[in-house]
Design a protein around this nucleic acid. Sequence first.
RNA 1: GGGCGAUUAGCUCAGCUGGCUAGAGCGCACGCUUCACACGCGUGAGGUCACAGGUUCGAGUCCUGUAUCGCCCACCA
Length: 1189
Amino acid sequence: MSTDAPTAAELPPKYVPADVEPTITQTWDAANAYAADTSGGGDPYAICIPPPNVTAALHLGHALNNTLQDVLTRAARMKGYNTVWLPGTDHAGIATQSVVDKRLQATGEKALKDYKLDEAEGKSGRDAFIEKVQAWKDEYEERITQQLKDMGCSCDWDRQAFTMDEPRAKAVREAFFQLFKDGLIYRGKRLVNWDPVTQTALADDEVEMEDIDGNFYYMKYPIVVPENFAPGESPGADTQWIKTGEFATVATTRPETMLGDTAVAVNPDDAPRAKYIGQFVKLPIVDRVIPIIGDDYVVIPDEDSDDSKARMASGFLKVTPAHDPNDYDIGQRHDLPIINVMAPDASISITHGWPAEEKPEQIADLQPLIGLSREAARKAVVRWFKDHDLLAKVKPYRHAVGHSYRSHVPVEPYYSDQWYLKVTDDKLAGAALRAMDASQRSDASREATPPGPGGHRPPATTYSKTFPESDALDTALSAYDEFIRLDTEKHADGSATFRVTLNDDCPEADAIEVRELLEAQGFTTDADAASGSTAKPTAPEATGLRFTPERYAKTFQTWHENIRDWCISRQLWWGHRIPVWSFHLSSMNEDVVTYIIKKFDADQRGEAGPDKPANWLSESDEFAWSLAQKIGKEHSESAHYSFGILNDEDAQPSPPHHISIGPVVHVCLRSHDQELVEKLEAAGFEQDPDVLDTWFSSALWPMSTLGWPEKTPDLELWNPTSVLCTAREIITLWVSRMVMFNLYFLGRLPFRDVFIHAMIQDGHGQKMSKSLGNGVDPVDIIHSHGSDAMRYTLTAMTTQTQDVRLPVDIIDPHTGETVHPKFTAGPGGTKVAAPIQEHPPGSGKQMVSSFGLASGQAEPTEDVPLARNTSEKFDVGQRFATKLWNATRFALGNLADAEADAVGCRMSVSDRWILSRTVRAIEAADRALVNYDFHNYANGLYQFVWNEVCDWYIEAVKPVITKPEGAKSRQVLAAVLDTSLRLLHPVMPFITERLWSALSAVCPQRGVEGLDPEETELLVNAPWPTADRALIDRDAEERFGRLQAVVSMIREVRNGAKVSPREQVEFSIKAEASASEPIRNGLALIESLTNTKIVAVGPDTVKPEHAAVVTAPLGEGYLHIEVDTAAEGERLTKRKEELKKSLKTLDGRLSNEKYTSKAPAHLVQQTRDQRAAAAAELERVEAQLNALA
RNA sequence: GGGCGAUUAGCUCAGCUGGCUAGAGCGCACGCUUCACACGCGUGAGGUCACAGGUUCGAGUCCUGUAUCGCCCACCA
């Protein structure tokens, strides 16, 4: 780049980001500036990008997120850390699958349901569909990557990862295998949150609650008794039932589920109704006779209650175990049958769990309901009850209903088989809680945390015991030799002391086992033993997981304290297929099972090396063991439950309840060994059709991006990563799971710090989202303002707040004008930009808004093009970039022939002052970055550069900068500019890099004593400036401050007197001889900054008759102008009032004996000084007023 | 129902462990095309810090309560 080194003249007068940014990007790429290598020196610094979903392009929320990461990354790189920022994307299972399906439907192509049919017919529907999704992923991954590159993100692009690529798939299989082997993954039959549209189960946190205006329906169920009713006698199948004429009136918001009712419940404490317990009702429509049971879950009606449920309740609760989680629990307590009345699409069905013995196909009144949607069925059922005079009443009711975060339809509680991860296990949730920084964990949790085997946290890492014989140590320990260190001390009497130290990287799961083992053998923790060189006790506050802002620690803590097992299976095609092959044992010969087990055993043993310790269960043994355990476990469970399995043909849950398939053997494969798979499948095993919850692979991200499960140098160096930077909505979904997994598999945190940044809302306070179409493409902002401007603004707006509002405008593609869009009512009371906008109004010229495009309500055409978004919020950044550009242009114009040696030249007050301020700016920037205080980092530098460097320093040195006596100032200016560029580089990389090259070309040697960091060719790799505190110059700061005050006052007077800025005015100063030195030093500065000519300085200066007076602590100044007496009087009077007022409050404070005695001395002194200054000025002002009059 | 947070100039927001005569940017008013910058320079107007109590010598800052708004969690009768 030296061949075409830019000179000052080559810096165009105007900063056009689009002309600069692409070139700079090329420069960085060519220099391979972001490449990270474990062999590089310096302490490690790593950040994993929160992988954006490949569902769509990035919006401003991502821009914020990634800007902050880049600020941290670039700063760390400059500070000399061995820095890596790992980029990547997330496959986002359900989201991507449904977005692709939607697109296929919209374009009329073969969509998911067609592929499902293909698959059912044995054609490759699944693979064909995945190809479609893959194509989408490729497109968006590329687009996202380009967006990040446009933003200047300094990721190591050679390490780009994708949650579903092969290295990540390997990590997922390994993690699943280990968890499976450790008994933490299980098959559960539960009510899941079922999304009938996407037809998959959702995790609890994928369900969004929405308030819905519904109704309470009061339905009358006739109470019946057996023909020959004898209390205590159980009715048989052939019992004849007689209506008593009484009714149990149930209250429900979901009448259609009554088809699956298997009981009616009343509260045993509900006096008027408890007597019905033990009786029966005949369920209308289906004529099923179900018992009335007693359960204290039932709310007792109370019309005067504060509880809305009590006001609405009828006292009778219909119990539908298959379609309501509470009812499910009641059903479990009372051993009620579970009757599923819906198909996976939530239409009424008699073939998905309706007991065949009821012969539902013969129930006449049921037939019209079959196939109806939930909503239609509700109406039909209500109509039926009304027609049969069984509908008591209907009351409107507003209540919260869970909706799918993906399809936005109400979630259906649905009874099915799923895979669960036992995160409730202490090794997962408990470990995550204990990993929190002690200073951020509330006391309640410390009590709530079950004390581990070692007692309180942090658990001991060193145990010892003395045995009579030196060979007495249990060999079981050697299973853990990877994670422990064993020291043996043999004594003269033949006994030996064994000291076991747990390694720092011992996974939590193994640590617990080791501790248990040791304690069982009588080992004790020995504080003295640990205090030696063997173990370095680390302070918990130094090692724990820390949140910034702190308050989010509470979210994390509460989540883990109330955590429930995690449903990890999803009925999707796009995702990591569950690495489990299953076989139903009902038809399997026991010999076959034995054979398979042995076969596996042999295969696995063949692979295991001969050097495996004998006592350490080989993987194959483990495998056989877990296989056997699974069989055993499920055999035992089968005594109580029937086992459903997934029906592979349609990849949907099979009718669960009534089909007893029997126990299932599950085989989990560690690696996708094709030979093994073939064997399994030949033996009749089938791979589970489900895929893993997308967060399963995300949870491994800080490990899988660094090579886990291999112990790669990358992993050892950069995991734990330094910080995770994300949004708060994801603390439970993602942060929690990364913490649990990293602790479980590696025994250490995935990251030390978690920085939670604000959420960007639109101008109406609505979350930016795809469905609202209010998301803004960062590239749009780069287009209108430039990347640096966007980055600066986003960084500066990052305070500790939860949300920031960002009003969005659109750019008229016809004229290029920025206009405020028109808004209309969107879905659910939201405000959205009108799909088609007209500008100017009535002109007929139209454009499509991004909402129009996103919602599919408008399609851009040549005449009605898409309008880009913009926002005037980014003007600040744009202006700042321009300011920096112009300041540099000024400097370069004057530094062109700056001689390197300014020896003999003394620094002026201004020089000393700006150097002092520069050191403070460095310190402030450092402090802000360490504290993730992005606002103060960006804003502080803004103030420094604009208000101090530009407004004062550059203005102050203008008179001398071109002259020989300005040599020192030129040197200082170059050093200050150099430092500013370095400090600003992390937030504004493009412009600073561009200016850096210009500065280097013009002034290759720069720096002053105490501020002389190494110059490098590229700023991206330049060292961060260090602050030499010796440059902090209080004297200069004080003097310069006084000069600033005088200048401001003169300007104020000039302005007030309406003196033209162009008119040079004479100025004279009256000051004591002792004060004349500092004043003389500042004469040139005062003259140039106020356009005055100083004609006299000294103790004998006489005030001209009409002059305006400027007062300062060291004297007075006289501005030789024809003062407008009235205006001057007004100004002075106003000032007088201000002074009097402040004098009054200061006097009040000082006369308060309690204040002077209790307040800190320096504050009292400060108040006294303030009072003295105010009194002195007041005196002068009054004197002037008298003179005027 | 539980939890977290917000409420400070017309707008968007700062204000750490109480010391503020309450700040910034935009917008507004006035004056300047001054040879780095009109995406600029200078000057100014504008706030009883949501409300009510309390603690304190002193409260925007701490405590209690009220109101409004937002988010997260919670089993949808």
